[in-house]
């Protein structure tokens, strides 16, 4: 079964690229990705640019409305995702808990819908 791991964290709490913590932080992500790959569960995954770059779009009465900012202004924001292929939810939860953001943010685990 495929699961999307939606990574919700607080940008302010994350190490900045010029800080000494940044290197080790990135190394942890790399290690996790490697584990996913080694276990044969990794389908894909990306980090997102900060929410300051987000644009929200909707179509109303045939007119495209764009808005600066994310879908909802909340403390924790979507910062990236992994797409994993796991045998069951227990396994997906185990991998979600390995993500560094799980320590202070939240990982939402969602099964991918299949059409058959």
């Amino acid at each position: 079964m495929q699961y999307l791991l939606l990574i919700y964290g607080e940008e302010a709490k994350e190490p900045q690229p010029d800080s000494p913590e940044f290197g080790p932080w990135m190394a942890r992500w790399a290690a996790v990705s490697e584990t996913f790959e080694k276990d044969g569960v990794l389908v894909g995954g990306q980090a997102l640019m900060p929410i300051a770059t987000a644009t929200s779009v909707k179509l109303r009465d045939g007119k495209t409305e764009t808005m600066d900012g994310p879908f909802a202004e909340t403390k924790e924001q979507l910062g990236g995702y992994y797409l994993l292929d796991c045998p069951d939810l227990d396994s997906a939860v185990k991998y979600a808990a390995m993500l560094p953001v799980a320590e202070y943010g939240t990982i939402e685990v969602r099964p991918i819908m299949t059409f058959d």
């Binding site: 079964m1 699961y3 045998p87 069951d88 939810l89 227990d90 997906a92 685990v109 099964p111």
Partner: peptide, 14 residues
């Protein structure tokens, strides 16, 4: 069924 909650006795570590 949709979220794939397994029908099993948990692993020893859990």
């Amino acid at each position: 069924s949709a979220a794939g909650i397994p029908y099993k006795v948990p692993e020893p570590e859990d």
